[in-house]
């Protein structure tokens, strides 16, 4: 016998969150809604803090497309603004650029230094190696690199960071399981990143404790309540290279809204752990993305 409650619970949540806007026949590319994902803080297609194997925008193997985004993370003692754009070609290659600006008034005050901002440029490239996030039985797999250049290296070097620039390399596998859980579509994403960055390289690369690349794990899991709303969580392991302060792994829980193929909005509660001796950096994250 089929339980009325199970169906009711799922459909009830779906009803509550159903966006009134329906699928539009937009010009922004031939892929399905939400398959371009959002843009993570470093400018690659992904969630909030973790990249995915999917490429930005909605271009199929015969098209080109792209996105632009702004995002803000606001924790107790820090604020990180990111802005950027990505372009992808034939659902094969993604190129991205982002500028990040970290405000650290508390830390600057504590250190007694005038700089209260760290800016960073990120240039990313991603190549889809294999598969399709929706249609192949195996996950979509992509390889990516993010070149990052810290523009305000005074505080990072004081903290013990060795380099103001470096390259992260990653391999991502992403799969949408149609009707995968409670008849809802489930998104799973796993990333291995080779990096020696400190706090997403906002505190530079390498340190006194360790100055070589290591493999860290990042992952995301989400549940599509319906075609427009995704709830989920992310995890991003952090290297711990500096003896001056320990780095803790980042995590968040998020809600993403895809009203149509032009826009998406992500809101999250993030927990970045301790950053540069300031404890318990929890707070909000919001990002808005436009696709073309």
């Amino acid at each position: 016998m089929r339980s009325v409650f199970g169906k009711y619970a799922a459909n009830c949540v779906a009803f509550l969150l159903t966006a009134t806007i329906d699928i539009v026949h937009a010009d922004s590319g031939g892929r399905l809604l939400a398959t371009g994902a959002a843009t993570q803080i470093e400018g690659s297609a992904g969630g909030g803090i973790v990249p995915m194997a999917v490429l930005s925008g909605y271009d199929t193997r015969d098209e080109a497309g792209g996105t632009a985004f702004v995002s803000r993370v606001d924790t107790k003692d820090y604020r990180l603004d990111s802005i950027g754009a990505a372009w992808s070609w034939r659902n094969r290659v993604e190129l991205s650029a982002a500028r990040q600006e970290l405000r650290l008034d508390t830390l600057a005050g504590a250190l007694g230094v005038p700089d209260n901002t760290i800016r960073q440029n990120v240039f990313g490239a991603k190549v889809r190696l294999y598969g399709d996030v929706v249609y192949t039985a195996t996950p979509q797999i992509s390889a990516g690199a993010q070149y990052k250049k810290n523009l305000d290296f005074f505080i990072p070097s004081a903290a013990g960071a060795k380099d103001d620039s470096g390259v992260d390399m990653y391999l991502a596998a992403t799969k949408l399981f149609l009707a995968g859980f409670a008849d809802r579509n489930v998104l799973l994403n796993g990333v291995v990143r080779w990096t020696k960055s400190n706090q997403e390289s906002l505190v530079g690369f390498g340190g006194d404790k360790r100055n070589s690349r290591e493999a860290v794990f990042e992952g995301s899991a989400g549940l599509f309540i319906n075609r427009h709303w995704l709830i989920g969580t992310e995890y991003r392991q952090m290297p711990d290279n500096l003896s001056f302060a320990r780095a803790q792994d980042w995590k968040d829980v998020f809600v993403a809204w895809f009203p149509d193929k032009q826009w998406s909005v992500v809101a999250a509660w993030v927990d970045l752990g301790d950053i540069a001796t300031l404890r318990n950096q929890q707070g909000w994250y919001v990002s808005i993305q436009g696709s073309f």
Binding site: R2, S3, G6, K7, A9, A10, A182, D183, L223, I231
Partner: peptide, 14 residues
Amino acid sequence: LLMALLSGCALQAS
């Protein structure tokens, strides 16, 4: 929400 969906799934036998 996740719990609601979980229970929905567990109770469902199609």
